[in-house]
Design a protein around this nucleic acid. Structure first.
Lengths: 113, 113
DNA sequence: TGCCCTGATAGACATGTGTCAATATAGATA
DNA sequence: TATCTATATTGACACATGTCTATCAGGGCA
């Protein structure tokens, strides 16, 4: 399935209600972040020096099977939070900062709300 | 269940990986936002003039049964995104801006990442 | 070619989740 | 008290999801 089109530059949800369509698109991304393992994967990838992480680094970071990690990576890729690239035998995942930034802006709350 | 303790003022996840515990706490909130109906409810409450919305306003905004809306409101309350107050026969829901702001800060991405 | 190694996919299974109809509860009002 | 309105709770059910084992596919290398 295609990554949802979040298309930044829209008012934060504290300004006006989301349409049903946009809610559905955005909710897909939040849903992907709504699993502890996936959220942690994102944080590992996002904070990693060099900006990318090999799958082999991730499988070692959790007490979960390799297919399970692979499944979570697929989910994160499908919603546009990560992208992957194969180099030789290894696959590297990188953050798509725009996706996270769009979400952040969407739920941002004016200082003294 | 108690609202997860997000305790703001922690580095964004682009700075350092989340611990398993914090991932679990934060993921609960993202999970609550990961449903289109709930996300839309939050946006309606958050953007509503006066800062609060009566349940009766929400049941009219969706083609869903009243118990279903009530269920979603409960989920949003349990993770600390909304609070409710009863006045006479009506129950009013308000946003907890800190919870949303904490999330926003957590996933914020430095400008030219 | 054949063998490893890394990662993805398929299928199974238990648990979680969104929805509804039915019912219960809280408060107002007659 | 009886009754009406507004929400919440319960229980059921179909479907989604996280996990595993087993297997497949891509790419190096002998």
């Amino acid at each position: 399935m295609e990554p949802p089109e979040l298309s930044g530059c829209s008012p934060p949800l504290t300004r006006e209600p989301l349409s049903a369509e946009r809610s559905a698109a955005v909710a897909r991304v939040f849903k992907a972040l709504g699993d502890p393992v996936r959220l942690r994967i994102v944080s590992i990838v996002a904070s990693h020096a060099g900006g990318e992480v090999c799958v082999c680094d991730l499988t070692g970071a959790f007490e979960l099977s390799q297919p399970t990690i692979s499944h979570h990576l697929k989910v994160l890729k499908e919603v546009g939070l990560l992208v992957s690239e194969r180099r030789a035998s290894w696959v590297y995942y990188r953050l798509v900062p725009e996706t996270l930034a769009d979400l952040s802006a969407l739920i941002d709350v004016p200082a003294s709300a």
